[in-house]
């Protein structure tokens, strides 16, 4: 990270007059070790303050609340209306009346295609464009935060939100299921039954899987966010891309493209409910998302360091 500051400092100095003015570090030199400690400490405190800002916002809690409503709605509806006819509705719906723990998984199946990408798109699209629209981006860059470091911190905060969002769905689903339905050993897709404890561990693994699934889209959102000063544009574009990718994934004519879509393995988390669990899709998914992170991360970095920060 130490090079980030110096390079970003130089970058800012050269990136045109307005950016040059906001750079507070150009021309300052100090011993490398102190600089490194300062940078790490600075990055951590920046990350901490970024998280604090994110989770202090009412909007963040509204998004998480909306996600929490999905399992609550499912559980209450089934509690009131009774079992669904077999084979209809989202997967795992029929198992809820037998085992309330499945509320979280059913909610995850429902939330993954649209609600999760929507909420995460809001946060990812807001990262840079939100600061720019508030006019706070240049102040962030005045602080000894290089542009690349700011980008990294913003992305890390988005990743934390991804984890919070998926955990919200799984944890709220499990709790509401526990409250409203009988709970017992978990029947896996293979027909094997595991204890409640192992079932919960698997549900946490699913939350991890879905979190990883969303990282590629977060990188896309981060890049789009560097392109504009209108956060809504970046948010909408991110969510639309997620939907478009899923539509393309449903078209057999585009089969050659499917392995490259960042949505390809989104619903593959069911592989963790097999006995023995199949980890192939987890690995494939992680590799794919890492590819998106590298490509769109690099694009975002290039865009960020060449950007004229006017607000």
């Amino acid at each position: 990270m130490s090079s980030d500051v110096t390079s970003a400092g130089r970058v800012d100095g050269e990136a045109g007059a307005p950016a040059g003015r906001v750079d507070g570090e150009a021309g300052v030199s100090r011993p490398a070790s102190t600089a490194r400690a300062r940078v790490i400490g600075g990055t951590l405190s920046l990350f901490a303050s970024e998280l604090l800002t994110l989770f202090r916002r009412r909007r963040t809690w509204a998004l998480l609340g909306a996600l929490a409503l999905i399992p609550i709605l499912i559980a209450v509806a089934i509690r009131i209306a009774g079992d669904a006819p077999s084979g209809r509705g989202p997967a795992f719906l029929g198992q809820i009346t037998e085992n309330g723990l499945f509320v979280g998984i059913t909610a995850m199946v429902v939330a993954t295609p649209l609600f999760l990408p929507l909420t995460i798109g809001v946060v990812a699209g807001d990262t840079i464009a939100g600061e720019a629209s508030h006019g706070t981006l240049r102040y962030l860059l005045i602080a000894p935060a290089g542009r690349i470091r700011l980008l990294a911190v913003k992305y890390a905060a988005t990743a934390v939100f991804c984890a919070a969002a998926t955990l919200t769905v799984v944890v709220v689903g499990t709790l509401i299921g526990w409250a409203l339905f009988p709970v017992g050993p978990v029947t896996l897709l293979s027909g094997a039954t595991v204890s409640v404890g192992e079932g919960l561990v698997r549900f946490l693994a699913i939350a991890a899987y879905v979190t990883v699934s969303m990282l590629g889209m977060s990188a896309i959102g981060l890049f789009l966010s560097t392109l504009t000063t209108v956060p809504v544009g970046a948010m909408a574009a991110t969510a639309i891309l997620a939907v478009v990718a899923q539509i393309m994934g449903a078209l057999p004519q585009l089969e050659w493209l499917h392995p490259w879509l960042f949505t390809e393995y989104w619903l593959g988390f069911a592989d963790l409910l097999r006995q023995p669990p199949v980890w192939d899709s987890f690995a494939d998914n992680a590799l794919l998302q890492a590819g998106y992170l590298v490509v769109f991360g690099a694009l975002a970095v290039s865009r960020m360091v060449t950007k004229d920060v006017l607000s």
């Binding site: 077999s86 029929g94 293979s190 027909g191 619903l267 069911a270």
Partner: peptide, 29 residues
């Protein structure tokens, strides 16, 4: 034989005691 469907699974278990065919979508064995 474990057929990995999307969000579902079909299994055929063959043992000395006989065969089990299990379909998770239908919840039928």
């Amino acid at each position: 034989l474990q057929v990995l469907d999307d969000l579902a699974e079909r299994n055929v278990y063959l043992t000395d005691e006989g065969a089990w065919i299990y379909d998770s979508r239908e919840q039928a064995a």
